[in-house]
Design a protein around this nucleic acid. Structure first.
Lengths: 221, 221
DNA sequence: TAGATTGTTAATCGATTAACAATC
DNA sequence: TAGATTGTTAATCGATTAACAATC
């Protein structure tokens, strides 16, 4: 597989994750799919589907379409989830608990290897996935050990603390070598630009939904 | 408050939710803010901030900036979260449980009034927020009762079932008058276009983050 | 070969930004 | 009034789409 590498827009990457999920569904029914069918499910044009995919290479067969298994494999590679990515969860409140106990939710390609909290009542307890909840001050040591003993570099953290702690906790993580953060809080993190942050704010999404609900053109309430 | 009403882009609404969260933080420190400061926190230009806000009206004072409290109130109204919006949760697995037990997570303006599941072992049990978990087949009756007895119209559902059930469950909800769905599953729902759906897919967001991590220009792993 | 669908170019559309008159 | 910052216009930039040659 030859991957072109150039400027890739956020939108394209977002759609890539959607294509993947759609393809996994489609695979249950078919072996092949074309840009028209894919576009219909995505609510977009076939031109966009082809353009998106051609950002990364030539994966289709003219006159036929795309082999679903092949495309799944390619997108999986592009997203780096063809291998296990080791992540830590910081904050073991309701959200952290849900994330660590729900094997489904992270999807394939990710494995939780550490859980941290600052609450002394939680530290030392065993989470539902059988990991011991560690003191958040141990992140540094943990990351080092994983590197030295198992040669596992931990880059990614899921930040699930309360929003009042988000900025501080994130800065600590960055100090310990974390360069990618899935931010489950409502706090807008202010970090060095080379740190990748993706926000996952449920309340914001609900607000968005609510706006469209009350402002829908075919509103009839 | 006079609200202009015209074509509003998804991006603007998304940023509106971000402005709101930033303003709530800023209020702790200041009474006023200008577009330059707001832009800095948002990682954008002051022109965009002003343009975004002016989509909805004239809220600033030339030479001074924006009154934070005032702006919060306005955005809160625009997003329709100045009043309580009643939502139901469908699916009381790990995700549904987290949502219903975590008062923080939905943010202000939303209240869970019903929890539904199809698992007989769960039906009749009491969830952490003290609501009885109801049979999902009762949604119809529940929605009608809320309307008739309390004059509460339920428009919004949070879909937290397993992805294999997502499409079916969503269609049932729509039949019972739900017109806005926060989709917590990885399944790409295919519904009538007048139904508002916002996707909230944790695994997709992790994939996105992972892509940027491994493709960051200043990668040095 | 004829039919189909890709990959890509060029045209269009929409979103962002620079610049500035309006005005506090 | 002078200084500052808004709201808005016009210019720029980027993303989407239409169209079609390439090719299976």
């Amino acid at each position: 597989m030859k991957l072109k590498k150039l400027e890739i827009s956020e939108r394209v990457v977002q759609r890539l994750t959607e294509y993947l999920s759609i393809l996994k569904e489609a695979r249950k029914r078919d072996d092949e799919i074309n840009s028209i069918e894919l576009a219909k499910i995505m609510n977009t044009t076939s031109a966009q589907v082809r353009k998106d995919l051609s950002t990364f290479g030539e994966f289709g067969v003219r006159g036929k379409g795309y082999d679903i298994d092949n495309l799944i494999e390619i997108i999986t590679k592009i997203l780096g989830i063809d291998k296990i990515n080791h992540v830590i969860i910081v904050g073991h409140g309701k959200m952290g608990e849900m994330l660590s106990s729900n094997v489904e939710v992270l999807g394939e390609g990710f494995k939780i290897v550490g859980i941290f909290d600052k609450d002394e009542n939680k530290i030392g307890k065993i989470a539902e996935n059988n990991l011991v909840i560690q003191d958040v001050r141990n992140v540094e040591e943990f990351v080092k050990n994983m590197k030295n003993e198992f040669n596992i570099k931990i880059d990614t953290a899921i930040l699930a603390v309360i929003k009042e702690q988000a900025q501080f906790a994130a800065e600590e993580l960055v100090k310990n070598g974390i360069c990618a953060i899935l931010n489950m809080t409502t706090y807008k993190l202010e970090l060095n630009k080379n740190i990748k942050v993706v926000d996952m704010d449920i309340s914001a999404k609900l607000q968005e939904l609510n706006f469209w609900r009350i402002n829908s053109p075919n509103e009839k309430i």
